[in-house]
Amino acid sequence: MQRVNMIMAESPGLITICLLGYLLSAECTVFLDHENANKILNRPKRYNSGKLEEFVQGNLERECMEEKCSFEEAREVFENTERTTEFWKQYVDGDQCESNPCLNGGSCKDDINSYECWCPFGFEGKNCELDVTCNIKNGRCEQFCKNSADNKVVCSCTEGYRLAENQKSCEPAVPFPCGRVSVSQTSKLTRAETVFPDVDYVNSTEAETILDNITQSTQSFNDFTRVVGGEDAKPGQFPWQVVLNGKVDAFCGGSIVNEKWIVTAAHCVETGVKITVVAGEHNIEETEHTEQKRNVIRIIPHHNYNAAINKYNHDIALLELDEPLVLNSYVTPICIADKEYTNIFLKFGSGYVSGWGRVFHKGRSALVLQYLRVPLVDRATCLRSTKFTIYNNMFCAGFHEGGRDSCQGDSGGPHVTEVEGTSFLTGIISWGEECAMKGKYGIYTKVSRYVNWIKEKTKLT
């Protein structure tokens, strides 16, 4: 034993070699072989497995989906700052455009905790909710729209109204504003409101030439003092309507412009014939205590009207009353817009006519005020429907199939267009061939041609 100890002390290297040989010859039971080890760690190889990531292109799944990435790591994937920024906006807080917040056709661009709407022409605001041009839906104005110097929408209202708090709607500024039905039992019968379409306001006024200088022999019209197929109006439903009495009662109609003036057809009036105007009328054979009678003290036909040349060209006249009318729910003026808007309103496509005229061709006159909704007829169809001249200051309205029309005794009465609950004068009943005849239409004086003249002559002093 002493000898062994001496050998170990003198030859430590020998001992180490012996131990190493023993270990190498022993069977290893701690580690699995290569094949079995792979069965336990069965993990798919990654895209760049075996390579240094710093030297390969980034992978979106590896960089940002398996674990949260930084902007720089995302930049490695896209290799483009702009594309990385677009991805980053949604990656950080989701897609803010998912709810489609942009209105009126706006395009949404996502941002971090926010979004941006790219608005089409005519709109602005956070969600493109603000109209900035009158060309689109009248700028959301209830009545009139004008573009300011910086191309912003400025709404306005006709006389007797003021802008509401929203700067879009119009509200009454006087007790009985024009064009409004205020009798409670008839307010439910107000005709369907007309909503502004998209309009090209630059070209809204037709490029028409008034044929002022045409000389033409007097034409022989049949029954051209021209509501057939209409309905009984309720008291106060058309408070701007008046009836004219002269040699015979209810020979023509008219509309209240203001307390002192009536507008009617020029062919209705004769110099030297006494005319009485009755406002607030409903049943011409009954006294309903809503009527107001006034005498006409002055007749002003349009300066281009000449019955000797043509009885229905420039067929418009103004009547001055001896005493002002007292405005109330049964006696209310009709609204008159400017030339541009009167023309736009007419193009809405349908209007209402009213009167006490004959209820059928050569038949009896109506006792109760009649009204009828009539569609506008395109000019080409209008011209083809008659052998008589249709001037540019006239328009056609009615039904091709016949059966409904204005008729004798309705002449001078109103053709009105309702705009968001307020009625505007767009025409004056003038003439036609018979009444409600198939293929024939009622012919009306186009008020847009005469609004400046009306307003100039009827100013209240």
Results as ranks from 00 to 15, higher is better:
Phe78Ala: 06
Leu319Tyr: 02
Asn283Leu: 10
Met394Thr: 04
Gly280Ile: 02
Ala308Leu: 12
Val181His: 10
Pro177Ala: 09
Ile334Phe: 00
His267Met: 03
Phe221Tyr: 09
Cys435Ala: 03
Gly355Val: 07
Cys396Ser: 01
Val278Met: 07
Asn38Ser: 15
Pro120Thr: 05
Val248Thr: 15
Thr85Tyr: 06
Phe424Thr: 00
Glu67Lys: 05
Glu433Trp: 05
Glu434Trp: 10
Cys102Glu: 00
Ser354Asp: 01
Met8Ala: 14
Gly229Ile: 13
Lys438Ala: 07
Thr218Leu: 11
Thr85His: 05
Gln370His: 13
Val269Trp: 04
Ile15Glu: 02
Ser354Trp: 03
Thr225Asp: 15
Arg46Ser: 14
Asn147Ser: 10
Met6Asp: 08
Glu285Pro: 12
Lys457Tyr: 14
Lys274Ile: 06
His415Gly: 01
Asp322Gly: 06
Ser423Pro: 02
Pro175Gly: 07
Pro177Gly: 03
Ser448Tyr: 03
Pro172Leu: 04
Lys51Gln: 15
Ile390His: 13
Asn310Trp: 04
Phe31Pro: 15
Thr287Phe: 07
Ala397Thr: 05
Ala37Gly: 15
Asn343Ala: 07
Val228Ala: 14
Trp240Phe: 03
Asn213Ser: 13
Pro239Tyr: 01
Gly442Ala: 15
Lys152Glu: 10
Leu244Thr: 02
Gly442Val: 13
Ala233Ser: 09
Leu318Thr: 01
Arg358Phe: 07
His303Glu: 09
Thr287Tyr: 12
Asp33Phe: 04
Leu460Thr: 06
Thr342His: 03
Leu211Ala: 13
Arg3Gln: 09
Phe55Ala: 15
Lys146Leu: 11
Glu231Pro: 10
Phe345Lys: 01
Val30Gly: 15
Val243Ala: 13
Lys109Pro: 00
Ser406Phe: 15
Gly351Cys: 03
Asp110Ile: 05
Val30Pro: 14
Val243His: 06
Asn36Thr: 08
Ile17Arg: 02
Val331Ile: 08
Lys274Arg: 11
Arg379Asp: 08
Ile344Ala: 13
Asn147Thr: 15
Gly427Gln: 00
His314Gln: 03
Gln370Ser: 11
Arg75Asn: 15
Leu52Met: 15
Ile297Trp: 04
Ser350Ala: 11
Val277Asp: 01
Phe87Gln: 15
Val377His: 02
Gly94Thr: 15
Val326Ile: 11
Ile210Asn: 05
Pro44His: 07
Thr81Leu: 06
Leu130Ile: 14
Tyr371Cys: 06
Trp431Asp: 08
Leu103Lys: 09
Ala173Leu: 11
Ala307Cys: 05
Ser385Met: 09
His267Gly: 04
Ser365Arg: 12
Asp93Cys: 03
Asp95Val: 05
Asn203Ser: 09
